[in-house]
């Protein structure tokens, strides 16, 4: 009897953990815009990333910096989703970096899981991140939350249909 109860408790804990994990996947967390514009001595605005660190040019509207690992299946699907978005929109860019080769970025932005996708604005400032496997819906939602001042040319792409 005790054994059965223990098994049921273990399975209940696993179910709760699984539901929590699923609800968090692809969630976009924006950095507070007030922090981005404040003149704090160490503003997050100093977290600028540029072509030098990324190895490729920034998108004129936004750049997805995906941090992936070799042992991560959702990373492949996320790569396909973000790669397709960047291919469809001239003003978007997508960079996929291996965490093992970019531990500096992992530490700097306190990345705990793969895939984590940093969302950069036109200047290369990190304005938010997508945590976990990301689908098209999640990525578009993140783009819609970009601070308005950093997406001057977004209206042309927002109306283009792509199904």
């Amino acid at each position: 009897m005790d054994r059965l109860v223990f098994i049921l408790v273990v399975l209940a804990v696993a179910t709760a953990a699984g539901l929590w994990w699923r609800s968090r996947n692809g969630r976009y967390t924006a950095i507070d815009p007030a922090l981005l514009t404040s003149d704090d001595p160490t503003p997050p605005g100093s977290d600028l990333l540029g072509p030098a660190q990324l190895g490729s040019p920034l998108g004129s509207r936004a750049t997805f910096v995906q941090l992936s690992s070799e042992v991560c299946a959702p990373c492949r699907r996320t790569h396909a989703v973000l790669g397709a978005l960047a291919a469809e929109h001239e003003d978007l860019a997508h960079v996929d970096l291996d965490v093992a080769e970019h531990l500096d970025l992992v530490r700097r932005f306190n990345v705990l899981r793969t895939p984590t996708t940093l969302v950069l604005d036109a200047q290369g400032a990190v304005v938010g991140r997508l945590s976990g496997g990301t689908d098209r819906h999640h990525a578009l939602a993140a783009l819609s939350q970009l601070p308005a001042s950093t997406s001057p040319a977004s209206t042309t792409t927002a109306t283009r249909s792509h199904s």
């Binding site: 179910t15 690992s69 042992v71 299946a73 705990l112 899981r113 793969t114």
Partner: peptide, 12 residues
Amino acid sequence: VFGLCLGCEMYL
């Protein structure tokens, strides 16, 4: 059940 690879999440 969820397709979650726990070991992979902890790899990083």
